[in-house]
Simulated assay, not measured.
Amino acid sequence: MDSRPVSIKDVADRAGVAVGTVSNVLNHPTRVSSSTRERVQTAIDHLGFVRNDAARQLRAGQSRTIGLIVLDVGNPFFSSLARAAEDCAAENGSTVVLGDSGQDVEREARYIDVFEQQRVQGMLISPVGDVGPRVETLRKRGMPVVLVDRVDAQRRCSSVSVDDVAGGYMAVRHLLEAGRRRIVFVGAKAEFQQVADRLAGARQAVEEHDDAVLEVVEADAMTVLAGRDVGGRIAQRPPGELPDGIFCANDLLAIGVMQAVLLIRGLRIPEDLALIGYDDIDFSASAVVPLTSVRKPTELMGRTAVELLLEEIESPSSRRRQVIFDPELVERGSTTAAVHAAG
Rank of each mutant, 00 (worst) to 15 (best):
V172I: 12
E108L: 03
L309D: 03
L26S: 05
D164Q: 14
P297R: 05
S94K: 04
S158I: 13
I281V: 15
R233T: 06
M170R: 03
V135M: 01
R319E: 15
R228F: 08
G20H: 00
T137D: 13
S318G: 14
A12L: 00
V206Y: 00
D130R: 13
C157H: 00
S318D: 07
L329C: 03
P5L: 08
G61Y: 07
A235R: 13
V184S: 10
R56T: 12
G266P: 05
V257C: 05
L199P: 07
I8H: 02
G129Q: 12
R64S: 15
A171K: 02
G61H: 06
G67F: 04
D164K: 09
Y278Q: 11
L262D: 09
G74D: 13
T335P: 08
L275E: 11
F77V: 09
G102T: 13
V184Q: 01
M143Y: 00
P127F: 06
A337N: 10
V165P: 03
E311R: 11
A205W: 05
R228A: 13
L225G: 07
R4Y: 02
V216R: 11
V230C: 09
P76Q: 06
L175G: 12
A221L: 01
L267H: 02
Q236C: 08
S79G: 10
N250K: 03
A342T: 02
A55M: 03
G240Q: 11
G227H: 12
G179K: 01
V151R: 12
A171C: 08
E215S: 11
D197E: 15
L275K: 08
P316I: 07
V165E: 13
V25D: 07
G179C: 09
S315D: 15
E241C: 06
R59E: 08
F325S: 04
R332L: 07
Q62D: 12
L309Y: 06
G302I: 11
G129E: 15
P127E: 13
A85E: 04
V172P: 06
Q117E: 14
I8W: 06
A43W: 01
S317E: 15
H340L: 12
G93V: 04
R64C: 12
R303K: 14
A178F: 05
L26G: 06
V330N: 08
E177N: 15
F325V: 02
E106F: 01
L138P: 14
N250A: 11
P127I: 11
R265T: 09
R182H: 14
V213D: 03
L308M: 04
S317P: 00
P270W: 06
H174D: 09
V97P: 00
G333R: 08
